[in-house]
């Protein structure tokens, strides 16, 4: 009975489960570039971009697949950074534990902020997340262990799992790349999981999903916590790479920057946030001579991009090729 039914589905159209070929190809291209890149480009720049790429992917999980615009994601990036830096420096945690601890801090923060914010929608949701992020910011300014304006400096990178010396730049790079790829793939899996399917249904028609018995807030909350957790993973990794946790990462402008990256690359696309993060990082890098004007130039570029390709770089590309990327 079931066998015939499945045959029937197979006959009706080509199989749709499994990862689409264009995405497999794109993933191969991305990985190849990232493996080769440190031999051609300044690795520290790449590591910074990879941390932000993961941050943007985490943010995209929420806005692209649940439709919630958080304007407080800096809180997760920054809090995880403080968590990792403090545990490594003050408590002598090895890097793997420091990263885990920082990520756990972000996850816990995600549960608290998410539980309080998830019932609101649209601009209210953005406002509430911003308000909580500002609280985290002021806490970071006041609390002693964060080092105030100076931040936590000279964080020891240590030896990963007791074997990989993270003070060697290339070793560090490939560890960061591995963390990024793991995070990227886990986010991809979450989107393409049974849970992801329910998220999709809720986004498509929330009243209908509710009428089928789905308690929509719980699914949104889990998505929020996952998003916060991966943002935290990015922040904790970043703190070890730069040996620094500072107020910059909890500042509201960081929440704005991740919105920019995601929109620029393509909201709700798999690869868009990665591309967006690299574009923004490259711009910041090359425009840094302009000093305070960076923000203005960035703003102009952003406005032009949003007006010319609304779907973002990858969104437009996917549309052109008629493939979902």
């Amino acid at each position: 009975m079931t066998a015939t039914a499945n045959e029937y589905v197979g006959a009706a159209a080509p199989a749709e489960t499994g990862v689409p070929i264009p995405q497999v190809v794109a993933f191969g291209v991305m990985t190849t570039i990232l493996v080769a890149a440190p031999f051609l480009v300044y690795p520290v720049f790449l590591m910074k971009a990879l941390c932000f790429a993961l941050f943007a992917c985490a943010f995209n999980l929420l806005i692209g697949y649940v439709g919630l615009l958080s304007f407080g994601h800096a809180a997760f990036l920054g809090a995880a950074g403080y968590g990792a830096a403090h545990s490594a420096k003050a408590w002598g945690f090895p890097p793997e534990l420091a990263i885990l601890f920082g990520t756990a801090v972000a996850a816990a923060l995600g549960v608290v902020i998410g539980a309080l914010a998830i019932r609101s929608k649209g601009i209210y949701f953005a406002n509430i997340t911003l308000a909580f992020a500002q609280m985290v910011y002021f806490f970071s300014v006041q609390a002693g262990f964060t080092g105030g304006e100076d931040g936590i400096q000279s964080v020891p990178r240590g030896t990963l799992l007791g074997v990989l010396n993270l003070n060697e730049t290339l070793t560090l790079y490939f560890v960061v790349l591995a963390i990024f790829l793991a995070g990227f793939l886990l986010i991809y899996r979450a989107i393409h999981s049974p849970f992801g399917q329910v998220l999709k249904a809720i986004r498509e028609n929330e009243p209908r999903a509710v009428s089928l018995g789905y308690r929509a807030e719980r699914y949104k909350l889990l998505a929020f916590v996952l998003s916060a957790t991966f943002a935290g993973l990015a922040g904790a990794t970043k703190a070890l790479v730069f040996q620094l946790a500072s107020l910059t990462d909890v500042h509201w402008t960081m929440s704005g920057e991740v919105v920019l990256m995601t929109l620029l690359g393509g909201l709700g696309t798999v690869f868009g946030p990665v591309v967006g993060a690299f574009i923004v990082m490259a711009l910041e890098n090359y425009l840094s001579q302009l000093g305070a004007w960076v923000t203005v130039v960035q703003g102009v570029i952003f406005v032009v991009c949003v007006l010319t390709f609304r779907r973002g770089v990858i969104g437009e590309l996917g549309n052109l090729l008629r493939k979902s990327l």
Partner: peptide, 27 residues
């Protein structure tokens, strides 16, 4: 399948492949 999934579980499983849902295809 979204409806079947609600009563037959796995709705919160974010770490599994959506291919597990193929088990609901027959019904």
């Amino acid at each position: 399948r979204v409806a079947l999934q609600r009563t037959r579980g796995a709705s919160f499983d974010f770490w599994r492949s959506e291919r597990v849902l193929d088990g609901l295809n027959g019904r």
